[in-house]
């Protein structure tokens, strides 16, 4: 008797577990979000904001799991995403380095090797100088460089957008600046404030945070001027046809079914419309604008077009 009851119970339990699986829609198990930085970094924070929003606001019916895979300029993580099963259970995000890593020859794939889910916000970026610098505008720098090539030192992190962007801007102005490998954001800041280099790329939140320390914005790469840094012109206004920002680009493995990509794209969009998420993004200095897959592809393709002609120059920095 007991055995029979047990059997029935087991059967019932099995039916409960496997029953819905047969015809359930995506997602039916936890989704892994691969993040190319350590836990605790700015990128990781973004991932965790989405993780919480997906769960608390019931936007995604399954749990999400954050997998931190730092290293090698984000390529360890992007490779893991690319090589995962295209079933929608392993996705992730990275920034515009996805374009420059291939351009530099570090990896042999770029955004086109993925299904693009969209861009979940971006930070506006631009060049900054030390407070007491003689340069007040981009034109000042360009004038100096035209009179004396290589006389302005730009602190960069080689092969990444912070390296390519100034290359593109100065090339567009017909000037030649001296690129100096310095490293990540904090090192570039130290280099500028210590007077070892003249200018480097920073994001608007950094311009605000380090104003007291002596960092001053020079020019923005944005579409239009930003009230957060009043009086600072854009590269476009200075006559250089270049717009760039630091995007959070969501990627799924190539071949992921369209309906799954749509589902994820919608989930991001819904989460970003939430006022709580919006305010968290604003605290981080990230513009909480969702950009759909098609426009994302266009933007990245456009950026690739700007980056490719610079590759030779970028690789020349190898002393």
């Amino acid at each position: 008797m007991f055995r029979k009851t047990l059997l029935a119970a087991v059967a019932a339990a099995l039916a409960l577990v496997f029953g819905p699986m047969a015809d359930a829609a995506y997602p039916e198990k936890p989704i892994k979000i691969v993040i190319p930085t350590n836990a605790g970094g700015a990128m990781d924070t973004i991932g965790r904001i989405f993780q919480r929003a997906f769960e608390e606001k019931k936007i995604v019916s399954q749990k999400t799991v954050i997998v931190n895979l730092p290293g090698a300029g984000g390529t360890i993580a992007t490779r893991r995403i690319m090589e995962s099963e295209p079933d929608g259970y392993t996705i992730g995000f990275w920034h515009d380095g996805i374009i420059t890593s291939k351009a530099m020859g570090v990896v042999d794939y770029d955004h086109s090797a993925f299904e693009l889910i969209g861009i979940s916000g971006y930070t506006e970026i631009g060049l900054g100088v030390r407070d007491d610098s003689a340069y007040k505008t981009l034109d000042d720098v360009v004038t100096k460089l035209k009179a004396e090539p290589n006389s302005v030192k730009v602190a960069v992190n080689i092969g990444l957008p912070v390296h390519f962007n100034p290359l593109i801007v100065f090339d567009g102005a017909g000037a030649q600046a001296l690129m100096v490998q310095t490293g990540g954001g904090a090192k570039r800041l130290a280099s500028i404030l210590g007077g070892h280099t003249d200018t480097a790329v920073f994001a608007i939140p950094e311009f605000i945070k380090y104003k007291e320390s002596g960092l001053r914005p020079l020019v923005l790469f944005s579409e239009k001027a930003n009230p957060l840094v009043p009086g600072i012109k854009t590269a476009k206004e200075s006559g250089i046809d270049f717009v760039a920002q630091s995007n959070r680009i969501w990627l799924a493995p190539k071949g992921t079914p369209q309906e799954i990509v749509d589902y994820l794209s919608n989930a991001l969009k819904t989460a970003m419309a939430d006022p709580e998420v919006k305010s968290e993004f604003e605290t981080l200095g990230v513009t909480p604008e969702f950009i759909g897959p098609d426009r994302t592809a266009d933007m990245l393709q456009g950026y690739l077009g700007k980056v490719l002609p610079m590759v030779e120059k970028a690789r020349a920095l190898k002393k």
Partner: peptide, 24 residues
């Protein structure tokens, strides 16, 4: 080994992707 910070290129990875970040 790994991605060399100074020139943005891979070094001594012997073609193994696992080595792209060197020895952490």
């Amino acid at each position: 080994p790994g991605l060399n910070e100074s020139d943005g290129q891979l070094r001594l990875t012997f073609g193994f992707h696992e080595m792209a970040d060197g020895f952490n």
